[in-house]
Amino acid sequence: MRIVLVQRRALTGDPGENLRRGLAVCAEAEQLGADLLVFPELWQTAYAPCPEDEAGARQWSELATTVTGDWIGSFREAARQHRLAIVTTFMEAGPDGISDAAALIDSSGRVAHVYRKVHVCDFLWERAFVPGDRFAAATVQTAAGPVRMGVIICFDREQPESCRALALDDAELLVCPNASLLCDDRIGQIRTRAFENAAAVAVANYPRPSMNGRSCLFDGRAMDRGRPRDHTIVLADDREQLVVADLDLQALRAYRARSIWGAAFRRPQAYSSLLKGTDMSIQAVDDVPTDAGNLVIGSGESR
Rank of each mutant, 00 (worst) to 15 (best):
A245D: 03
R225D: 15
R21P: 02
Q269I: 15
I152Y: 03
C183H: 15
P40Q: 03
G226H: 03
A202Q: 06
P289C: 11
C176T: 10
A112R: 09
A55Y: 05
V285N: 05
G56Q: 08
D14V: 04
W125D: 04
V201T: 09
V38R: 00
A128F: 08
A198R: 00
S61M: 13
G33W: 08
M1N: 08
L242W: 06
E301D: 10
L166R: 01
A101P: 00
A236T: 07
R193I: 10
L37I: 07
A202D: 02
M211V: 13
A204E: 04
E54C: 11
I3K: 03
R9D: 05
W261S: 09
P160N: 12
L235T: 09
S272T: 12
A79V: 02
F123Q: 10
G13C: 13
L42K: 01
P49I: 01
D14L: 07
V4T: 10
L173Y: 03
A245V: 06
D287W: 09
T142N: 07
D246C: 05
E240F: 09
M91N: 06
M149H: 04
A263F: 02
A136P: 00
F195H: 06
Y206M: 12
W71R: 08
T89G: 01
N197L: 05
F195C: 10
I98D: 00
R266S: 15
A257G: 11
R134G: 01
I233N: 00
E41W: 00
R110A: 13
S272L: 15
L23W: 04
R110I: 07
C154G: 04
A144R: 08
T232Q: 07
T278L: 13
M211C: 13
E126Q: 15
S61A: 15
Q283H: 12
I153C: 02
R164D: 10
L182D: 03
V288F: 02
A85K: 01
V151A: 00
S215F: 06
G22A: 09
R239K: 15
P228G: 07
L275A: 13
I187L: 13
R186D: 13
T89A: 02
A263T: 04
L181I: 15
P49R: 01
E240H: 08
G94T: 09
D106H: 01
D238Q: 15
P207K: 06
Y47V: 04
R83F: 08
V175T: 07
G56A: 12
Q159M: 11
P207Q: 14
V296R: 02
D286A: 14
F90D: 01
V285Y: 03
L252Y: 04
D238H: 11
S61Q: 11
